[in-house]
Structure formats: C-alpha cells, structure tokens
Amino acid sequence: MPKTKFPAVISTFLLCFCFWLLLTWSFEAQELAAGAVVSLAAALLSARFFIHEKPFWLFNPAKFGALFVYVFVFLGELIKANVDVAKRCFGGCTDVNPGIVKVPVDLEGDYARAMLANSITLTPGTITLDIAEQDGKSYYYIHWIDVAETDREKAGDIIKGRMEKWVRRIWQ
C-alpha cells in the first residue's frame, strides 16, 4: 500500500473542504469547524489513493487555464456527438455500424489517460472498453457506433478530435 504523503493530504483536504462549503453554503464558525474536522479525517484516510503524482498541479495558472479552455472544447464535442446520436435514435435506430477500434494514444501518466478515456466515454457514440500497453505505447479499445474509418490512426484522430491536445496541455 502506498504511503500517505503530507502535500497530498493538504490538497485532498482543500478539495473536501471546498465540497463541504458548496454543499452546506453557510459560513458560521460551527459549520466551518465541523467541515474542517470531517475533511481532515477523509483526507487522511483517502489521500494515498486519490493523489499519486504532483498534488499541486492545479495551482499552476497555465494548467488551470488549459483546464478552463478544455471544458469548452469538451462541451463543443459533446454537443456535436449528442446531436449525431439523437438523430440516429429518432431515425429509427437502424442507421448504425458498430465496431471496436484499437486507437493509439500519445499521453503520459495515469491521470491524463484516465481523463481522456472518460471524456471519450462521456461523448455519445464512443465508449472506451479497455486500455492496453504494448511496447511502451498505450492503446484504447473504443466501441464506436458508426465506424467511418477502419484505419486506426485516422479513426483515432476522428474520435479524439481536439481533446487529446488539450488534455496533454493540462497534465504536462
């Protein structure tokens, strides 16, 4: 089991405390104290599972800016894909051509890979089934509702769109 590190505890505590503030939305001393105690307990117990890499990456303004831009990039992709799948659903659900494509991914680190995989899963029309590592490169197995391109590199470009570039900017 990994050891609990102090910076990781601090950043987990900050996150928990922000959640507490947002959920209770009251700033009385009693509420704040109770929240601090609960968050500290949660942070001590869960920091070693929650944070593996640098705990304070979000305090870097460039990365925070990239995360902010990424939200809008992702929303754009989300709306495009949603309209596409909704059209297929209203069109009688026969206009599908499903398949599982193995797509190469050029990202370092667990967080970056997990974030891109989750973004792909969240976009309707694509679900990440698995991540594999072969010869130092990582691959996603992606179920795609409409296989427009069977070449893996090109299919990857279509599926990932602009998201991969921004995820790389956030985490590196």
Binding site: L78, C89, F90, I127, H143
Partner: peptide, 23 residues
C-alpha cells in the same frame, strides 16, 4: 436516448444511446 435504449439493435449500441440521457 430513451428511444435508443428501447430500439437499438444490440447491447453496446443501447449503452451508446443511454449516454445521450446522462450528458
């Protein structure tokens, strides 16, 4: 999304349609 869940031809396509509801 609900229509897709009911009418899509196989399990994976049904899951794809269900993401429409949850996003």
């Amino acid at each position: 999304g609900t229509k897709g869940i009911l009418k899509m031809p196989d399990t994976f396509c049904r899951m794809q349609a269900s993401t429409c509801v949850s996003t």
